[in-house]
Design a protein around this nucleic acid. Structure first.
Lengths: 366, 366
DNA sequence: CGATGTCATGACACCGATGTCATACCTTGA
DNA sequence: TCAAGGTATGACATCGGTGTCATGACATCG
């Protein structure tokens, strides 16, 4: 590979002048510049980032770690959308910047994380983003103080900046919209409460009921662990049969996520219950392969993974640029940033009366 | 960030001795080593890859580019499984090696590719993998001859090493297995022929029919473009209604991919046709969120994206290690490596008689 | 006319590692 | 006793860029 000296020799100038052409940081005579540019093109010269970094001490690199550092005791199964969408959002944001993104995957082995961090540090990354598979709490090893860290889809107790989905508000918005469509008997089949989504989304459901002064009916609320291999689908059958048999059955089933809604479609059809005429169904995640392909298309809430990724990237870039004038040591326990996604209203929930809410904002963040 | 000189000073030795401890390339007295290791831990010293690379001239970096460099005229929509699974496979393979993977995404703008390659070259990557969204032909700018290139999920006309899914064989294996289950009237609803999968999979279907001496019936073969926004689903209804009305209707519908199979489930149920008792259904891709969540679970063919990623990574590592003794200029137009995935036999296809084939190999490659 | 300023360029040191070579000490064997 | 060989360490140059400073040629101004 050609060096700056080769270019200098070919152009009959000093390496420093070539450097000036490359960086445009000092005036260079037009003819000289053209000679040098010709030599660069001729030799196929590409400057070495390593050599450049030696002096400037700025790598322009940012690290990204994906994988599972769950603090939960049992081996967990991701609840919804692949976290790779977060990664895509992060990539998008950095593609528009002058930073280069390095990605490493733990492959599910959280004990590899220190090694990955070490590798990133050798490359002198200016910042690091950790992306979790699903909304959860994590604990990461301490970082050198000159490397910034941002958590995406997870948080810790040390007050590291974190970007999280606003599960509670998302579920609230969906149920509020369902209520606005005229529904009153609204069932909720949630995910297991060990994961954050299973804990927060039911709260949003209750928020919306309370706002509309609809009594909370425990008979309409269930939990179903989709992770279970074979036994659990049967449980879902039982739950739905029980709800259908209620004296006053629900008119809509809100599911913990889209995957569950997909199963519910099958169960309802097998029972001869038509969606949405006999029973409305809603999901969560906006897992588009499911939500848009199902018939009828599924009403759901967008889990704004891509937007969260963008937000995480922006947060990190702000930290790198040094938006932290005071506070020399220890961050002031920043509150997590909650990102809410829009309700995706499709045909799986009936409008029992003309909705009072005509339109929802399409994208919204906190 | 501490340097090797800081460590040397703290340990009272020369930088070179610290270097020897770090690399273990020369004997160092036990006490000296322990002093140095203590100093390293104390200062939190991490060696700089940039400085190391300056002398060794080996970066240990590998680049990966994802995105859309389609040669097809219209803006294409990915047909099946997200290509990110290929990326995961590549990551897995490199995680087990001593190389560090740098990932860049074009974000769908193929004109960004030269810039991304330039960035990688500045970092002196030892090799590069290009991953396409779906099986297609691409054209990449020429690389410097000391940087190796491998194509995954795509190929070019320059004979660059390529890793491709064996769509023809995969479809053949599925249909052969369906025939072994006792089916004779096998319908095929393919993807549009502009994409490779839409061209190759029907060939595999015909291969399997020919092997079993079953006549090819054009009435059982259709094409349906899933990419179409609203008009196309109606087309799928029409296709299925027509097939159901045939004098001798099919006993199984083989779909171009799992997403189409998901729609077919809904259509069949709406027509009162039970899956699989009245009609069997098969897909392609093994898009697990769909195939495993549907009821009944979907019989399909695994699109071995992860395995292809691993294979691509291995190919690149072999090239880097220099498995190319002769041939100074221009590769000898290597044939693409075809990777076939296993048939995933689930409950959506009935066994009309005890299958003659008892078991298929679970993973297979060419 | 001499002082000052701008433009264009080069000499040289330096960033943080490692390769090469030299050196000093200690063992071992003829 | 001295050569030969292994062990342990350091001095120094080097990789490919860039920051600092110096220099020479002109132009401008008081």
């Amino acid at each position: 590979m050609a060096t700056i000296y080769d270019v200098a020799r070919a152009a009959g100038v000093s390496p420093k002048t070539v450097s000036r052409v490359l960086n445009g940081d000092a005036p260079v005579n037009r003819e000289t510049r053209e000679t040098i540019e010709a030599a660069i093109a001729d030799l196929g010269y590409v400057p070495s980032n390593a050599a450049r970094m030696m002096r400037s001490n700025r790598s322009g690199l940012v690290g990204l770690i994906t994988g599972a550092i769950s603090l939960s005791p049992e081996p967990t199964v991701p609840a919804g959308l692949p976290d790779l969408f977060i990664v895509q959002g992060i990539q998008t944001a950095f593609a528009a910047s002058d930073k280069t993104l390095m990605i490493a995957d733990t492959g599910g082995h959280s004990d590899r994380v220190p090694h990955l961090i070490q590798t990133f540090l050798r490359h002198r990354v200016e910042g690091l983003i950790y992306v979790a598979e699903y909304h959860q709490r994590v604990a990461l090893p301490r970082m050198p103080k000159d490397v910034h860290l941002v958590l995406a889809n997870c948080y810790d107790t040390a007050g590291t900046p974190a970007i999280l989905p606003d599960d509670r508000r998302g579920q609230h918005d969906l149920v509020a919209r369902v209520i606005a469509a005229g529904h009153r008997r609204i069932a909720y089949i949630g995910l297991r409460p060990e994961i954050e989504a299973g804990r927060l989304r039911p709260l949003g459901y209750r928020d919306a009921l309370a706002e509309a002064r609809i009594d909370y009916d425990p008979a309409l609320v269930e939990t179903c662990d989709l992770a279970g291999r074979d036994g659990e689908p049967q449980l879902l059958w039982d739950i739905i049969d029980r709800m259908l048999a209620l004296p006053s059955p629900p008119t809509v089933l809100c599911c913990g996520n889209d995957k569950m809604a997909l199963r519910v479609y099958g169960i309802l059809r097998s029972r001869g219950v038509k969606v949405p005429d006999d029973m409305s169904v809603a999901g969560y995640d906006n897992y588009r392969v499911i939500a848009e392909t199902l018939y009828p298309p599924l009403t759901t809430v967008d889990l704004p993974y891509s937007a969260m990724g963008v937000r995480a990237a922006q947060t990190l870039m702000a930290l790198i640029r040094g938006v932290r004038p005071d506070d020399p040591q220890g961050l002031p326990h920043t509150e997590p940033v909650l990102v809410a996604g829009p309700v995706c209203w499709r045909q799986s929930v009936t409008e029992r009366r003309s909705a009072t809410v005509t339109q929802f904002k399409s994208v919204r963040e906190d």
